[in-house]
Amino acid sequence: MNQKPEDRAISQTNHELGSQFDCEYISSTIKAAKDPLPWKCMLYFIFISTPFSIFAYAWILSTFVAAVCISIIPFIGCFFWWLCALSWRSLGRIELLATRLCYEADIDIELPPKVYIDLSCECKIFPPILDKYTWRCFAYFVFVKWFITPFTLAYATILFVIWFLPPCLLLSSKGLILLGKTQYDLTRQFLLDD
Rank of each mutant, 00 (worst) to 15 (best):
K40T: 06
F151H: 07
L165F: 12
W81N: 06
C78G: 14
P166Y: 03
D22R: 11
F52K: 10
I117L: 13
S71K: 10
C102N: 08
W135F: 10
I94H: 00
Q12G: 10
L111T: 07
G77S: 04
V142Q: 01
I177P: 03
D131Y: 06
L43G: 13
I107K: 13
Y155Q: 12
K114N: 10
F80P: 00
V142C: 03
S28N: 14
F47K: 14
P166I: 04
S28W: 05
Y184F: 15
E122P: 04
E16F: 10
I109Y: 10
N14T: 11
D185H: 07
L179V: 04
W59N: 14
T152I: 05
I148C: 02
F141K: 00
D108G: 02
Y103R: 10
Y116K: 09
T149A: 06
F21M: 10
S53E: 07
F45S: 09
P127D: 03
Y140H: 08
L192C: 08
T29C: 15
A98T: 13
E95R: 06
S87L: 11
A85N: 04
V65H: 08
Q20G: 07
W146P: 00
A66W: 07
F160E: 02
V115A: 01
W88H: 04
A105P: 02
R8A: 15
C137R: 00
S62F: 09
P112N: 04
L91S: 12
P5H: 08
Q12P: 01
L91E: 03
F52T: 09
D7A: 15
C102E: 02
A58Y: 15
T29K: 08
I177H: 03
V142H: 00
D108L: 07
W146Y: 09
W39A: 15
S90D: 04
Q189M: 11
I48W: 01
L83I: 14
F55P: 05
L178C: 07
L17A: 15
T63W: 07
D118H: 12
I94T: 05
L97P: 02
L96T: 01
K4G: 14
L130Q: 05
Q183P: 02
K124I: 08
F64E: 07
D194P: 03
L153I: 09
T63Q: 10
K4N: 14
I46F: 04
G77Q: 02
G77Y: 03
D185P: 00
A33E: 12
F141D: 01
S11P: 01
E24V: 11
L119F: 06
